[in-house]
Each structure stands twice: as C-alpha cells, then as structure tokens.
C-alpha cells in the first residue's frame, strides 16, 4: 500500500493558486523529499496531507484513507512537524511529551511513547525544565521527539533542520534515519539541497506550485547531466 498518493492536487488561497495540479506518491519505509524555493508550494502540500488545509481539487489518500472525508483516521497514523513549530512555554519538556502522548494511548502504551520521546529528544535533565528556557536547537529536538515518539506510519516533516546548527542538524537527520529503519514513511520538505541528497530516497522538485522533475537524486542528476541537485533544479525550471 502506498503511504501517500497525491493526484492532480490543486490548492487555491482566494484567487491565488498555491499548488497547481501536482501528483506524487510516497512508498512505505521511504523518505520522499519535496524541494523548491520559498513560496513554491511545499508547505501548502504538506499541510494539505497533514489534514490542516482543504483541497481545492484533486485527491489525496494516506495509507488508503481519503482526505478530507477520513481526516480523523489519517490523524491517527500521521505526525506533522511544522517548519516553525513551538511547544507550550509554560510546560516542561516532559509535560509536553506527556500531553501529546495522552492522545495516542493509555497505561503502558502511554509510558512507552513518552519513553521514546525522551530518548529521541535526548535532553537529559533539561527535559524537566520549562520549554521557555530552551534554546532553539533544544526545542527542535523536543519537537522531533514529539513527532516521532508516537510511531507514526507517516511522518510529515517541514524543514526538519530549519535554523539548527550543523551538530543539531546532523543529530536530527540521524533520528529521522533511525525512524525510517523502524518502518516509518517520511515526507519532508526542504530547500537545503545537501540535506535532501543525504536523507531522501526520492525527490520531487517543486516550483510555482508545479512539480518540475522527480526521481532519485542519481536519476535526476543523470537526466539533467548535473553535478548536484541544485544544478538539476536550475536546469529543470529553465
């Protein structure tokens, strides 16, 4: 079964067309990257799949569940990490993980989810401090932990390493990779070409709301006779 199937998706904001008929699929256990410049439509596409935005036309299914009709079922199996996500500042990191975990299970299941969140975020004793006192990197690690601790079938990650330094970014990429090894499908967006090449099994290049090219990094580089994905993109939009 496909993790995600997007067919001719169109999304309008008033008269502005943010997504103009894109189609792609994400397989189980795969990391699929949507890459493109700011305003290309990456976040909008992710928000539609994460059940946050309505579809103007086209269709989206997640593990066979159709949006928006079965949005409730989709929310049970996905986890979404927005680009500029935050956590509740008056809660401690642990309390925040507890809060989220309660939506996904009780008793032992709840304890296991929280334990996984603690391990992924790896904040040590600072997990008992209020989120308000965290650095940007610590908050992002907490949020990545929150997103992956629930063992989603599909993780939707919008710029997962946004604003992080090299060390923290590398740590987040390691966490994502280990989740994929555990069977999680990942749909992520980025405009960091290096990150995309390192993380993604397949890539779709998106520009002005349209997918201009897709495939594995190697396929794309070969097709466009380019040395890297950045070059591929420049050639693809010409």
């Amino acid at each position: 079964m496909k993790a995600v199937e997007v067919r001719e998706l169109v999304k309008d904001y008033g008269n502005f067309r943010a997504i103009n008929g894109i189609s792609f699929e994400v397989n189980e256990g795969e990391v699929f990257g949507l890459i493109g410049p700011n305003g290309a439509g990456k976040t909008t596409a992710l928000r539609v799949i994460a059940t946050l935005l309505q579809i103007t036309s086209g269709s989206v299914t997640v593990f066979g569940y159709e949006l928006p009709k079965e949005a409730g079922e989709v929310r049970k199996i996905i986890s979404y990490l927005p680009e500029e996500a935050g956590a509740y500042k008056n809660l401690t990191g642990k309390e925040y993980l507890n809060f989220i975990a309660k939506f996904f299970g009780d008793g032992e299941k709840f304890q296991n989810i929280v334990q996984r969140g603690l391990e992924i975020s790896n904040l040590g004793e600072r997990i008992n401090d209020k989120v308000d006192t965290y650095s940007k990197g610590m908050t992002r690690r907490l949020l990545v932990g929150r997103a992956l601790m629930v063992n989603p079938r599909l993780a939707i990650l919008d710029e997962p390493t946004s604003g992080l330094d090299v060390i923290n970014a590398q740590e987040v990429r390691r966490i994502i990779n280990s989740s994929v090894e555990a069977g999680v499908a990942v749909l992520l967006s980025s405009h960091n070409m290096l990150e995309v090449e390192l993380l993604c099994h397949r890539i779709a290049l998106i520009n002005e709301g349209r997918i201009v090219a897709s495939g594995t990094a190697a396929e794309l580089k070969k097709e466009y006779d380019a040395g890297n994905i950045e070059e591929v993109f420049v050639k693809a939009i010409k």
């Binding site: 994460a50 946050l52 929310r75 996905i78 979404y80 927005p82 996500a85 935050g86 996904f104 929150r146």
Partner: peptide
C-alpha cells in the same frame, strides 16, 4: 506556533 500541531492530533 503550537496550533498546527494541535490540529493534526487525533
């Protein structure tokens, strides 16, 4: 920026 997360919870 916590609203988006809240709205994607089951």
């Amino acid at each position: 920026k916590t609203l988006e997360t809240l709205l994607t919870l089951p």
